[in-house]
């Protein structure tokens, strides 16, 4: 079991962009994912964290080959899939699934819950033991819904229940790997906890591996084994969950951690916050050197010219010339 389930090396996904204005013909390249490398072991959860525009969702979709990577390598169980055609990917699709942020938008409102989940079996011509209906009803019960929900429509459910339907759909084909793209961001706080707990139970029961994408560090803490922090298409720091919250090494990780408010007024008042100055640079024109240099309070001349590579600092890997 030493071989990783997923091994991503120097992954790049660029989107061509035409200028926003009708009268200006500015063209460029949005370097959404700009050299991403990470591995994921069987049964492991990697949290992928970053602010909007950092490329975390694009990364998740590219890994699943929903986008064609511009360059780089994606190895799934040792098999190089980066240049696979959609047809060649199809048998692998049963192994890799996705859970989306907005369960409302990702479920067809005109189909019953049963039809939505059964479709997975039909597409891949898989006949589960005991028939499709029984299998789907078992799944519904497994995710905390009931077998009677089979004939209902998505709009009859609350947001949290809809996300459970999305989870059941992702589980139907018994995948090994699931990309969870902000699965709880659209849910109420009291429901978020339910869904996070459900996802960690399912992982333990089925031996799943997650790439868990989130916009802040707090949600990830309770589910991830390791956390990768992204900024402008690159990984700034990747570290075990046990250490990243207590001993962050990258200034950006530190800033991101300090920005998350703590639900305790006394601590919150004492806490020292790093308020980042400036704006996120455009991914069409990322800064030279370290991409974070324009907003970093520790930046020195070297940071503006030389791009730091990920290197080992204690238990973490950090892309910084001057790690904490």
């Amino acid at each position: 079991m030493s071989e990783p389930l997923l091994e991503v090396t120097n992954l790049e996904k660029f989107f061509p962009v035409s200028g926003p204005g009708m009268f200006s013909r500015e063209r460029g390249t949005n370097k959404a994912v700009n050299g991403l490398s990470f591995t994921l072991k069987q049964g492991e959860t990697l949290g992928l964290v970053g602010e909007s525009g950092c490329g975390k969702s694009t990364a998740g979709r590219t890994v699943l080959k929903l986008y064609d990577p511009t360059s780089g390598s994606i190895k799934f169980e040792g098999e190089e899939i980066a240049d696979y055609s959609p047809r060649k990917m199809k048998p692998l699709r049963t192994q890799m699934q996705m859970i989306f942020q907005d369960p409302q938008a990702s479920l067809n409102p005109r189909q019953t819950v049963g039809a939505i989940i059964s479709a997975s079996y039909e597409v891949h011509k898989i006949k589960p033991e005991g028939g499709v209906k029984t299998a789907v009803q078992d799944l519904l019960e497994r995710v905390g819904l009931s077998a009677e929900h089979f004939d209902r429509y998505p709009h009859e459910f609350s947001g949290g229940q809809r996300q459970r339907i999305g989870i059941a759909r992702a589980l139907a084909l018994k995948p090994k790997f699931i990309v969870c793209d902000e699965p709880v961001s659209a849910l109420d706080v009291s429901i978020q906890a339910q869904v996070v707990n459900l996802l960690s139970d399912l992982r333990d029961d089925f031996g799943l591996s997650y790439l868990f994408i989130a916009h802040d560090l707090s949600v990830v803490q309770h589910i991830a084994d390791r956390v990768a922090v992204m900024y402008l298409g690159k990984i700034m720091e990747i570290a075990p969950t046990s250490s990243i919250y207590t001993a962050p090494h990258h200034p950006y990780t530190k800033a991101l951690l300090s920005a998350v408010p703590i639900p305790d007024p006394k601590l919150e008042r004492k806490r020292e916050q790093i308020v980042l100055s400036g704006e996120l640079p455009s991914p069409m024109k990322p800064p030279t050197g370290c991409v974070f240099s324009t907003r970093c309070w520790k930046a020195q001349a070297k940071c503006f010219t030389e791009e730091p590579q990920l290197r080992k600092v204690e238990s973490s890997e950090v892309a910084c010339h001057f790690p904490e």
């Binding site: 706080v189 009291s190 978020q192 906890a193 996070v196 960690s200 560090l217 707090s218 949600v219 803490q221 309770h222 969950t241 046990s242 919250y245 951690l257 998350v260 703590i262 639900p263 305790d264 601590l267």
Partner: peptide, 11 residues
């Protein structure tokens, strides 16, 4: 329900 980062990483 609120995920908290100030407490030790509970499961």
């Amino acid at each position: 329900s609120v995920p908290r980062m100030d407490r030790p990483h509970e499961d």
